[in-house]
Amino acid sequence: MKISKSIYLFFLPGLFLYSIFFLYPTVSALFYSFTDWDGLSDAYQFVGIGNYERALTGDSVFRKTVGNNLKFMLMVVIFQTLTALAFAMIVLKNTKTNLFLRALYFFPTILSSVSVAFIWSFIYDPSLGILNQILELLGLHFLQQNWLGNSDIAIYSLAITQIWFHAGQMLIIFVAGLQAIPEDLYEVAKIEGASKWQTFRKVTWPLLAPSATIVIAYTTIQSFKAFDLVFAMTGGGPNNSTEIIATYIFDVAFRSYNFGYASSISVLFMVIIAFITFLQFKALRSDRISY
């Protein structure tokens, strides 16, 4: 059937804005990454791959930042996914209590990162905070910490906040994935005398793999984008111990006015994300079965 040419007009408004405010800046990030532009003056010079060389070999802060980001990502991906999956399996049936609990667990997702940052800054506060007070009550005062001020643990404190923030959202995705598994497969497994673990390994997990792929990919990208949380809770400190790539780009660009260098880190940032996402899809696809 012939479709009227007017259909092309439907793309125009969106494509126009998308090109100007998204595609153009993304492409020019690539362009500026080869310059020494400071973001203010009109003049800049091409420095070839100088910015990339500096990021990959000369910049110890950048290397630390990538390490922090990986620590944060691994902790969030592993613990958030396991928490979400374990709890999804408990609140799977649509009973009244379970619907209420799912709604409650999901709740933090609708808050703004700044609000979550304030809540957890209070929880972690060394003198006022609920966490140290609870440890005191339990007689565990030797575990008390300056949770955000100690550079050895601050990044993990942030990861816990991130998990509190988003585990409920992942839980809901798992619930949807688990509910889509046909009931009769479990019955067959039961008749054949499969143990709980065998049923999980041979029935649940392969059929859950598509949801797991989505949850893990989504969590990974979210953990790289945890800009707001870090920015509002620690600002990257102490001693850059919580600086992640996103906040580092912000600092280099808007505090040191080094737009060219910040752009090259942006490009590397994109490459890292693309690479990790690709690996995950590859790893998880091998476990995938369709029914």
């Binding site: 993304t26 990030a29 790289f224 790539i245 780009i249 912000f250 660009a253 940032f269 994109m270």
Partner: peptide, 10 residues
């Protein structure tokens, strides 16, 4: 796929 922080500078 592109995080917002990638193109915030330009």
């Amino acid at each position: 796929m592109v995080p917002a922080q990638v193109n915030m500078v330009p």
